[in-house]
Structures are given as C-alpha cells and as structure tokens.
Design a protein around this nucleic acid. Structure first.
Lengths: 213, 213, 213, 213
DNA sequence: CATGAATGAGGCTTCATTCAT
DNA sequence: AATGAATGAAGCCTCATTCAT
C-alpha cells in the first residue's frame, strides 16, 4: 500500500494552484483524517463526507487513495531537504566567518518551525515510515543525501575551523537531529505548541556544550 | 479500532502458559505480521495462514482481532515497561552513590538492549501511539511517571551532588532519551544490528559533555 | 454492380443528420473502440479521449451511450443490410439466366468483400447478436426474409433448371452461407487480409461439387 | 478483462467434485447469466442472488470475476480438442479399413452433441472471442493444434487412401468445420433444439459430395 | 477443540450522465 | 456549442466474524 518511492512522489506531486476548490477540500480533509486516524483507518467515504463532496469527486483528480497520500506528502518530502539545503549553504557562504552557534540556531529554529508548520504531514510520514518499507527506504536515502550533502559539508567546515569536536559527520548529525527531534516529536504527536525561541535556545545551549572540541 | 485503554489491556491479558501450541503460533504470527506490515494491513486470514491454523482457531481464544493485539501488547505494557522501571530504580538504589558516568552507561546500555530485544513489539506500539489517542495518553502518562519517579529522582540526586548541570529534570531527561533514541530508533525501524558497547560509549561520552555542570 | 461500402452509407447518413466535425469524431472513435474492445468495455471517457473532445460533447448529440451504439448500428441494420439485399436481387435478376457457377461466384465475392469492408461494424453487430435478444430476433428475421425472398428465389430457379441438387432452399443456403463464412469470419475476427479471388475460386469449386445434382 | 490465456485457463481450472453445493450453485448461476446477458452485463451481485448465496461466497472459491469465467470455460476449452482427438484416433486406429463416411459421421455427430451439451459455454466463448484478444489467440492456437494434430493426420490418412480430394488439409478442415457450424451455431445462439441424426446425415451427405476425389 | 465455508457490511474504484460556465 | 468538474449509483472485492460439522 501507500507510496512506492520518491520517484512516484515527485511525478505525482501536483501544482496546487490548478486544483478546484472542491479538490483542495479533499486534500484538506484527507490531511486531517490521515493524521488523526491514520491512512488505513480513513475511508474514502470519510474523506468525501468531511470535504463535503461526492466520492466520485475524490477520484476525479486523485486516481487512487494512494494518489491522495502522494499529493499530500509530495510537497512535504520535497521540502525536507531542498529548503534546508539552500538555507544552510546560504548561511555558511554568506557569513564569511560564521560562528557555529549562529549556524546551529538557524538550523534548529528552521527545523522546529518546519515541524510546527507541518505537524499533520509529519504524523502521516511517521505512520508510513513505520508500516511501509518503501517509505522507509525513501527517507533513509533522504537522510543519507542530507548527511553526505549540504549539512555534512557544513559540519566538516566547522570541524576544520576547530569549532566543533572531531567526530564522524554522521555522529554529529545524529546528536543534532536527535536534539531537535526531542522538541519536535512531542509537538507532532501531541499537537501541543511550544515556545520556538526557548526551544531553540535550549537545544543550541546543549549541543554547543556537547559538541565543544 | 485497535486498543482502547490500559484497563482493557490488563483485563484481557492472559497467561501465556495456558495457551495451546496453536494459539501460541497465532500470537507469534501476529507479532511478526503486525510489526512488519502494520495492524491494519494484516488480515486475520494472513495470521491463520502464517500460523498454520484455521481461521476459526484464531477466534477461539482471541475473540476479536483487537483481542490479538491486546494479547501481544498486554504483557509488554503491563509487565515489561514497569519491570524496566523497577530495574532502573534498583540499579540506582543498589549502587551506592555510583559515578554519574556509571549510571548513564547502565541506563543507556539497558535501554538499547531493551529495544533490540523488543523490536517487534516496539514497532507495534509506535504504530498505535501514532494512530490511537488512548495509546498516546497511556504512554504520555508512563513517561511522566518515569520522570517524576525513579529516573527523576536519580537525576535530582546527581544534580544535588553537583555532577550534572542544574537544568530542569524534564530537560535533562529529554536529552538523555533523545540521545538513546538516536541509536535505538534506526535499529527498531530498519532491524539493523549495532555494536551495543560502542553505541553506549559514544552516547555516554556525548551526554557527559553536554550535561557537564 | 459492386456493393456500396458501408463506410460510404455511414458518412452519408451522418451528413443527413448534420453532425458537426466533433460529433463525427465521436462516432468514428466509438466505432473503433466498440469493435476493438466491445461496447461494455468502452467507457464514454475513452471515446471522448480518442475523439479529442470533452465528455460533455459526447452527450450533446447522443443522449446516452446506447444512443451512440444506435447511431452506429442504426444505419447498418435499417438501411445497409436491406439495401445490400436489394442490390443482391438486382444482380440476380439483371443477369439473364447466368450459369449457376457465375451466380455463385458473384454471391461469394460480393459477401467476402462486404465483410472485409465492414469488419468493425460486423464485429459490433456480432457482439450484440450474442448478448442482446432483440438484436438476435432482428437478425433471425433478416435471414428468413433473405431465404424466402430474393436469394431463395434464385436458388429455386437453379434447382428447377436442374443445375443444383433438389434439397430444401434453407439447406442449400446453409451450406453456401457456411462456406462463405469459413473464409469471412477469420478475416472479421483476426483482421487478417485474404486473397479475395483465390477464396472465391476455392469456395465456388467446393460448393459446385457439393451441390451438384 | 476476462481470461488471459490458455495457461491461466488450465491452471485455474478446478476439480468440480471438491466444490461445495453453494459454490456449484455459483458456477451454475454464472453459466446461465454469462450466457444470457454476457459476462460484462452480469454483476457479481446478480450471480450471488441467482445462486442464493452471499457475495462473499462468490469470492471464497473464485478469487475474481474472471476466475469464475475461467472455472466455467476451463473444462470446456480442455474438451474442445482432447476428447475429440482421442475419439478420432480410436476411430481411425480401431477400424482397420475405416470408411471415410464412418469417420465423418463420427466427427460430425460428436461435435454436434458437444455443442448441444455446451450451448451456454459456447455462447460465452463466442462473446469472448469477439471482445477479447487473448481468447482469440487461445482459440486460434487451439485450432492450429487440431489441424496439425489428430484431425489433420486423419484427413491426410484418407487422402493417401484416395478417399477424399487432394486439397490442403486446412482447406478440407475449413469446409468440415463450417458445415458442422452451420448446424451448431443456430443451436447455440437461438437455443433451439435439432434432430441430431438428421443433421448428421445431411452434413455427411453434403461433405461427402463436396470432398469426393 | 478445530475447521473452513459462509456471511454481509463496507472499502476502493469506475463510469454514465448532468450542469454551470 | 463546448467544456470538464461534479455526481452518485453501482461494480468488484476484502475481511472480520460466525457457526455447523
């Protein structure tokens, strides 16, 4: 079931601007139901009802139930890396002598906001990662790209500048990611809100200590 | 719709010794299938087939499909987690004023082994936490008890001894848990194996630095 | 002398009903799809797509999907077959007492060409004859008229002239029709082409022997 | 949709004796409905209703609607050649100096009875041959096997004995088949009954004349 | 106890048809 | 006239659950 691979996600992802009001309603209803009850516990009839359309309309644009999932997750998945990547490189390149702290704060805040903005999508992704092998592979690949790509380069950069400890990039990434997750996951699961600034400060403080050379 | 609440779990939980060979086969098959494909994507016919029994037999002992889930998760929630908690306190209490590092290593190793040993059950629990409100509440409560209970006391203890930084207990717990998770979750999800000792060493090293007073 | 192609008659009737270019495209697409996949396995959306028009346009002229079938089969059943029959009798009557062989060759060639020219319509008609009771009755009546009408008279004529065996007209018709079909049906079904002249020669040779007095 | 190929037919064909009464009722109802209204115009709900079972039961044994078709047509298709083949060779082998007439009568009577016994199946097959490419191929292959196999050998045998005209085997087969069909098809389509003996006599008489050396 | 045939509600999907633009 | 989004009935199929053997 569910999404097959990243390729599919990209190809199936569509321009939201060309959707009709009803089709957007379908997407909105699906996002809510999938994240609340889970993909498998949401019927297409549930979606139609909440969206206030007929079941036929659900299928006019999104050929299958999986297609709806893809339409929801496509934009999300695409943002997981690219947006972060470009902001990273900008941060690093722009500032001639950037402090590691500044970089860390940018990354942390950026990702926490991303999670807050995409709570529902994140919950759906979590579901799929647990139950769907292909989704798991897709995200494993995504993380590998992130580590061997922009984020990994940034970490190397600060290591060479002697600003952080000389651990393998993957290990540093592990702790940064885990610390961010420690604030993000409760938000995604409980839907509770947090003080972004305070969370950023706390996480940065801890990581700076933990990654000091 | 899967598990309702902890009470049900307790009442429905059963003594494994009373089960016949076939009924145990049903549980074993269910554990594998639920953790591999997810509860909703597993049919009772799948279970019967993998267990090598008739569909009727599946229903003889476990009145419903939810009943099977309860039979699997019941012992896990009812016994394993509380038992783990008590082992914690014993470790802490028994060791007369151990070094914080020693404590940390025990906790970390303990939890990593726990995850490795209970990968399948954990994945099922994760599924339910994400899709089931009651399960989520149950686990939120469990964590609160842990923080305000034995683990929280241990952290306070080390703080008063001036061995770790004076942050709120919840914040310290957050980082400890996140760091452990950073090693445990990939194992639980991908089923990959890790070097427990190396993971323990690394995690302890990082946390000791990050939590230094 | 040669039979008018059904295609010609078909487009004539289209001109009469003042169909627009798009509506003709609908009929053309329907003819292809109905004959290739069958009426029931062709969707109106298939038709719209192949015709290059919107689904709404399909329904502008032809109120229902059955209406399209009627528009295709109507001319065929109501005009083409009777007209063919009359052309048939003209052939027979006009030729003043030809030899039976000459008559036979004309009939055979005539029908084989007809089948080749009208493969698609024929396949649709065959479908309907098999699944639709009314179509079956219509067709049965048509054959009866043919046997008791012009074709029957021709056969009687040659019997009285002592040129063919004295079997009941229906029986003679049966063999003539079957022999023609043995060449025509493979063409209609497989869409394969045949050497019309050779087929005519062979069929005539066999029938002449079999129907010798 | 419908049947895919001969291989599928064979593998899906099942031993009728191991079907329950209800499953046989499903087959019986399907046979009637498919042959009366056509495969595509018969819904699985129609079948369940006529069979007096639930829709679930329809799918317990026959995994798909196509599966029902295969279960009906499998035995039929298997009989088209094998039974005829064995009887042919017996007829030829057993009789030391068999007359061609005797052989012809056996074949004709055999096939007419086969058609009468399998009217409904034949109508279904005709439907599928017209609308389904694979079914068409399956039957084309079947006929080729028949011509190049037992029946072809028999014809050659009688040609070498100087009992029938020296036409290519395929041509002789064409006329024999067509003549039989001329009696069989009306029966299959109209469901009318015929006098088997009379039909056999007539067909044999005509063919003997037409195929005389 | 065990079996597996049977059930029927409900899920996903298709499609002929309508109608506002 | 043409469009294509929208509809909803109906089709195929799955599956948790029951029950006679």
């Amino acid at each position: 079931m569910a999404i097959k691979n990243l390729q599919d996600l990209f190809s199936e992802s569509l321009d939201e601007t060309q959707l009709t009001a009803k089709q957007k309603a379908v997407l909105r209803a699906s996002l809510k139901l999938f994240s609340d009850k889970g993909f498998d516990r949401t019927s297409t009839s549930d979606i139609a009802q909440l969206a206030g359309v007929s079941e036929g309309t659900v299928y006019k644009q999104f050929k299958t139930k999986d297609g709806i999932l893809a339409a929801i997750l496509g934009p999300f998945v695409q943002q997981v890396i690219p947006r972060a990547a470009s902001e990273f490189s900008e941060t690093i390149t722009a500032t001639t002598y950037p402090s590691f702290e500044e970089f860390l704060r940018t990354v942390i805040k950026n990702r926490i906001i991303f999670v807050i903005d995409n709570q529902r999508q994140l919950r759906i992704v979590l579901q799929e990662i647990i139950t769907d092998n292909n989704m798991r592979q897709t995200f494993t690949k995504l993380i590998q790209e992130l580590v061997s790509g922009p984020l990994g380069q940034a970490i190397s950069h600060y290591q060479q500048a002697g600003l952080i400890v000389q651990w393998p990039v993957l290990r540093v990434f592990r702790y940064v990611a885990a610390t961010i997750m420690s604030y993000a996951i409760p938000v995604a699961l409980a839907g509770s809100s947090i003080n972004t600034q305070k969370a950023t400060d706390e996480a940065a403080e801890f990581l700076l200590k933990g990654l000091k050379p």
